[in-house]
């Protein structure tokens, strides 16, 4: 069984392939980390997979009618926009839009999903705060909760933990790992390879638009891959406290 399947996804910009023939399938229960240097095509790949970006190839999500897709996959973009000074709870409730017919009032099930998302992200004390007056990291957590409230089998998030403090970075990755343990799947792009190694069940390594490696963190984060794609050497060991990955030196 697969939640989503992408084959030969290709996006070209000015004749240059930004995403180059990427194929993969997503099974339930996977916490997938999407890694790669700046400009490797991580954002474009996720947008193309969702059908937000015209692409060649095939994406099972992009093929769905928009309302169905919105109930199949949630998307947290990298730009953390909150246009109006609404309360945190109102903002998170926006995640229920795909489940509500036009003009319908939220049902108890919607409120339950909103409350669950708030609880997962530890935002209970923020409920009635004005979202635009929160700090950048707090806003990011609210927006993650918004995507969680959409309550979809697949969650895709573009650098959700950038700008969060260490405790919240770990807590957020743990939320994603928990979702995977519950049978949902998460695709999350991130630059912190240490957190990726610890919390993801599978890593996708993108290099100039191509899928350079796909598999469990231990095999993807090989010294050879890391050196070739990122241009750094790294310390990577299985310890009693779990895997530890630390980039050490620039090698080029």
């Amino acid at each position: 069984m697969t939640l989503a399947a992408f084959s030969d996804l290709t996006v070209t910009r000015n004749g240059c392939p930004v995403v180059d023939h990427v194929s993969l399938t997503v099974a339930p229960g996977e916490c997938i980390g999407l890694i790669g240097p700046n400009g490797a095509g991580k954002t474009t790949l996720m947008r193309a997979a969702l059908g937000l970006q015209p692409a060649r190839g095939h994406s099972s999500l992009a093929d769905l009618p928009a309302p169905d897709r919105a109930r199949a996959a949630a998307w947290m973009p990298q730009s953390r926009e909150i246009a109006w000074p609404v309360t945190v709870e109102t903002l998170i409730a926006l995640g229920r839009i795909p489940h509500l017919p036009r003009g319908a009032r939220p049902q108890p099930a919607d409120q339950a999903a909103i409350d669950a998302a708030i609880a997962r992200m530890g935002l209970d004390s923020y409920r009635h705060r004005t979202a635009t007056q929160l700090s950048g990291g707090e806003q990011a957590r609210v927006l993650i909760a918004r995507a969680l409230a959409q309550d979809t089998p697949l969650l895709m998030a573009d650098e959700p933990i950038a700008g969060l403090d260490p405790a919240n970075q770990i807590a957020t990755m743990q939320v994603f790992a928990d979702l995977a343990a519950e049978g949902r799947s998460v695709i999350v792009s991130l630059h912190d390879l240490g957190l990726a190694a610890r919390h993801c069940t599978r890593l996708l390594l993108l290099d100039r638009g191509r899928l350079a490696a796909d598999g469990p963190p231990g095999s993807v984060l090989s010294a050879e891959n890391v050196e070739r794609v990122f241009g750094v050497s790294a310390f990577y060991e299985q310890t009693a406290l779990g895997p530890v990955f630390q980039p050490m030196q620039v090698t080029r």
């Binding site: 919105a70 998307w75 973009p77 246009a83 926006l94």
Partner: peptide
């Protein structure tokens, strides 16, 4: 009167609104 739902979704930006099924 029919654009309210879409405008609510746009609070999160065009990309997020589109991903929530807004045309």
């Amino acid at each position: 009167a029919s654009v309210g739902r879409g405008l609510n979704a746009l609070t999160l930006g065009e990309d997020a609104a589109q991903a929530m099924g807004i045309n």
